[in-house]
Amino acid sequence: MSTITTWSANPTDIGPMYPFVGSEWIFLVICVAGWLVWHIWQIKAENATYEEESGKLQGESLIEAIDHVWRTHRSGK
């Protein structure tokens, strides 16, 4: 596991110091997959939230929400 076994070696001979040297590609695959999954999850979650709230904010409830926003805006809360 440990790449370095002594700190007494000649420093100019020391190369990479992180553990599991040679396994970088495994971490890269995991991180790239995680990054892509995060974007997909985020877009789906955002769409679902907007869809749900859009259904609620119709007609009078939308007018009420707009009035409420402006009352809050003017009072500086």
Partner: peptide, 12 residues
């Protein structure tokens, strides 16, 4: 994937 994209002292 480069080893110098991590902690590295420059040897090897």
């Amino acid at each position: 994937l480069s080893v110098v994209m991590g902690t590295h002292m420059g040897g090897e």
